[in-house]
Design a protein around this nucleic acid. Sequence first.
DNA 1: CGTAGGCTTGGGAGCGCTCCCAGGAGGGGT
DNA 2: ACCCCTCCTGGGAGCGCTCCCAAGCCTACG
Lengths: 347, 347
Amino acid sequence: MAAARVRSGGRPTLEEVAARAGVGRGTASRVINGSPRVSAQTREAVEAAVAELGYVPNRAARALAGNRTDAIALVVPESETRFFAEPYFSDIVRGVGAALADTEMQLLLTLAGNDRERRRLAQYLTAHRVDGVLLVSVHADDPLPDLLEQLGMPSVISGRRHAAETLPSVDSDNFEGARAAVDHFISRGRRSIATITGRLDVYGAQRRLDGYRKAIAAAGLDPDERLIAPADFSEEGGARAMRELLVRRPDVDAVFAASDVMAAGARQVLRESGRRIPDDVGLIGFDDSAVARHMDPPLTSVRQPIEEMGRTMARVLLQEIANRSEDRAGERPRIVLPTELVVRESS
Amino acid sequence: MAAARVRSGGRPTLEEVAARAGVGRGTASRVINGSPRVSAQTREAVEAAVAELGYVPNRAARALAGNRTDAIALVVPESETRFFAEPYFSDIVRGVGAALADTEMQLLLTLAGNDRERRRLAQYLTAHRVDGVLLVSVHADDPLPDLLEQLGMPSVISGRRHAAETLPSVDSDNFEGARAAVDHFISRGRRSIATITGRLDVYGAQRRLDGYRKAIAAAGLDPDERLIAPADFSEEGGARAMRELLVRRPDVDAVFAASDVMAAGARQVLRESGRRIPDDVGLIGFDDSAVARHMDPPLTSVRQPIEEMGRTMARVLLQEIANRSEDRAGERPRIVLPTELVVRESS
DNA sequence: CGTAGGCTTGGGAGCGCTCCCAGGAGGGGT
DNA sequence: ACCCCTCCTGGGAGCGCTCCCAAGCCTACG
């Protein structure tokens, strides 16, 4: 008895839609998944039935039968606190969200602070089945990317771990951004240009330093190592580095900090030392975050198109997922988006 | 041939675990789900097999068979931008995350700005099957809560829509918080105490106003309506309201703003008008957010235990879900958490 | 007029799990 | 010694869908 199988309560199933449209289950499925191998007439009938019944496919059933989940994870190596504090992450999420907006794809946020958690995560991700993973703010010795690669999980990384990144990646042009900042100082007649670096085990931080060096060298300035102060992307770290710089080279007349937050720390120290910005010392940050706009004076900063990076990462990942299921050989895209110097009063 | 069913590639299934442990599928399932009706010996054998095979249950299969998803949605009526900008949301998420940490429950963030989206969302949520929904920052005429209630979806609301809220809710004591703020002003000898309200279609904002009125009346002060300026929780709104207040009652000597952000707007205007805080005018905010601590002077503010609200909401929701599946009658908990006045220099 | 080939179509098999029933093994009471 | 419970256990049924095979239909061509 076919009718017996069509229960009336609860949510409609594919079977019910098919019955209503007077077609088979397979055909109904084809229509719903946009297969071209359906006659126009049939398609219409099924679509009508879907509308009338308010049918929405059951995600779990789909996942089970189709061996996919229509979900991707964004893995952030941070605690909730920092995740929400850093505008970087929210911009990424916004971009990813935008790229996924007209997709069925669902976004899972996964915060995993330490390596142990991240190791477990790999298993977890493959078991709970997401179709792909976006990795953000990964440091060089993170085990997760390799684990995911071994497990054959499509992944995209923001930035990269090192020059020979094997995963598909989306990065901004840290090198050129840094160079532009230093060139800007040079064009304004600054000569003792220092830099405060981020953690150098982060590839992007290294590239910013490379860009700084390149610009100094290209201008024929003295490449004094005392003008390079390492820090850790934190405000306090920026302040500490600035103090060192003032001791080592009191004549410094420009500082390129590898993040706005570090620039904020540096600014504080410069103030306390009685130096005026930009009159005595020019200051440039990196990220062009809200911090930069609200600083006093407003901070010149290298803008990264973070939201676009998020959008691009999502697109690349979707492509990777499609490639894999079609068994096509992927060519591991490695995308670099341009940065832009936003000039304000601090330089 | 039993062995034929046990494929070796891919992730292990329950069946494989059961075979390895030398028990039936049902028994293995019982162990994994912590049923008490298993002998200690059997339990050990299964647990060993799980460990050896690195078995992790397939979520989709579970969801399909068990008609549940082990996932709940946090629905935020905001765009990504505001979601990340407001510390309120991050605290809620942190609390919810904490409550869910040692659960299998997964958290889905769903941002839906307008009513149309929210209407679709109800269907979406029931179809994609989450087990329950957390609603945050809902305004009085939002269709979503009623829709969810009709659909029988367990839901918990933060704050409430009106005095006769039907959904389980977790709120902070807005009334007492406001009253404490005004009482504090009164105890310091302030007499012309104004308030800047939030959007009054938000129940909490209304209650803060009620608390203000109550305190004014209790102290026998003149309840001048010109001391009440409505705004919308935004910084700009706070500034605008403050300007109005200064025109209507230039003698104002204290302002209770229904949010820290509005207090920030008010502060700006007070400064511009040449008034000193707290010497000429006392200022108190609401939320005790980071803004309050970093303001100059540091802002006295009414602290809401937002993170705890998140934690409580999650707990209540888990209870609701459990109740429903056990068909127990729920008594619709309505929880109100205490607020606390954090006194700083601005008052 | 026969047949090959292209389109559509229906529906069986199976994804991995939970639910539940029935059956076997003990244990205690009379 | 017998019966009735209780406790554990195995495995069938089925969740709603996708995949895929085979069958039906039609057109076009020899």
